[in-house]
Amino acid sequence: MSQPVLTFTDRGIYCPAGDFHIDPWRPVDRALITHGHADHARPGHAAYLATDGALPVIRHRLGEIAAEGIAYGEARQIGGARVSFHPAGHLPGSAQIRVEVDGQVWVVSGDYKVVDDGLSEPFEPVPCHAFISECTFGLPVFTWPSQKDVAAEINAWWAANAAEGRTSMLGAYSLGKAQRLMSMLEPQGPILTHGAVEATNAVLRAQGYPLPETIQVTPDTDVKALKGALVIAPPSTLGSTWARKFGPASTGFASGWMRLRGIRRRRGMDRGFVISDHADWPGLQEVIKSTGAESIYVTHGYTEIFSRWLNQQGYDAAIIPTEFGGEDDAEGGTAS
């Protein structure tokens, strides 16, 4: 075989044939971005390419950038490489990136989940020779309950709080998880949002993603008048003075990490809801199998354990280093 389609450098994943990087962590000339989360879309690149769905949020987060949008499935020739973006199901606009060079196809998964959350474009498996997969939750202890069950659980919590005059404070990342939650719940009262969440809402609404009505909390908001409210806010704000104005409240955190009791308790919230925008253990197996790839590169998460497992399953698996190897496998990193 000739040169590999993608190589791994100290700036991130690199395609020599097309002279571009994918989700690089240091400034490069040309960056292909899977989605708008901060560990994937970083500032400082000379040119960005992302899906039309992901680009507005990326612009919102990074400000003035030289960026171009691309539709899902649209093929584009960049030097000697043919690239296309395919739904990853992680959040609205998120993509896997397919790179083909001389008939060899490699796919970079970015972050992905298999279940249809009703808001993001559902995951599509992309056949390939080599698959670069995240494995944030690559341990057999991580299996997710159905979205329907978790929604029922959160609805019941919200309803019980409302009945007892408590505000429900739900911690969720402001891009992706927050919108998924608000669109999957059965309203038991008004939905209030933190400014960071509402800013993302505005961007997504302008793109035509259907989100329920929300009220942004400002210093003028009369929170006492909004009985039985659910507040969706970044987790870090829940313990802050900002959260105190809501009076008696019950706190909850929505994340895949809530599957583990130790982490749930350490978070110090009243409730932990197990819901993630990453694939769970069965999801990872299913996707990897469906790509038909023989070579699997793993990144983001329990890479050592997961690659060992894949090797035992007959794949040719290896770990690719990430600069922030510690971030996603630490609880409360960007992964959710």
């Binding site: 583990l260 009791r261 130790g262 982490i263 350490r266 630490a330």
Partner: peptide, 8 residues
């Protein structure tokens, strides 16, 4: 650690 302090 264990329990509450797992992952730390």
């Amino acid at each position: 650690g264990h329990g509450r302090r797992a992952n730390l």
